[in-house]
């Protein structure tokens, strides 16, 4: 197989999908219902990325105390919810995650 040909095709498809709507600019105005629908893309996609990482970081559901992802991600969400400060939430969650993983539960 020609690897460069394979990669060129992958590049073309990836950039075309990413540009699919952006490239239209002012020539594309969405109907009102679609604009409303797009508001839910960020909460939906981000939750779809986060929830499995929190509940099943290694692929299978893990609600045990050894799963440091769960408390870490819950703290990130709670601090961001209360304070509205993204950076603060991330830093606090790192501390919780780090302590949980390497401090509280050795071995």
């Amino acid at each position: 197989m020609n690897h460069w040909l394979a990669i060129s095709g992958m590049m073309l498809l990836t950039v075309l999908i990413r540009a699919s709507f952006l490239v239209f600019g002012q020539r594309l105005a969405f109907p009102e219902w679609l604009n409303r629908a797009l508001h839910y893309v960020p909460p939906a996609v981000l939750s779809a990325l986060v929830v499995p990482m929190a509940l099943a970081p290694a692929g299978t559901v893990d609600l045990s105390l050894r799963n440091a992802y769960l408390p870490g991600i819950l703290v990130a969400a709670l601090v961001a919810w209360k304070s509205g400060k993204t950076l603060l939430a991330i830093v606090v969650s790192f501390v919780v995650y780090g302590l949980w993983r390497w401090g509280l539960l050795p071995g």
Partner: peptide
Amino acid sequence: MGATFAAIVAP
């Protein structure tokens, strides 16, 4: 990555 996504989505 998970923490950042969570902090962005929660509010």
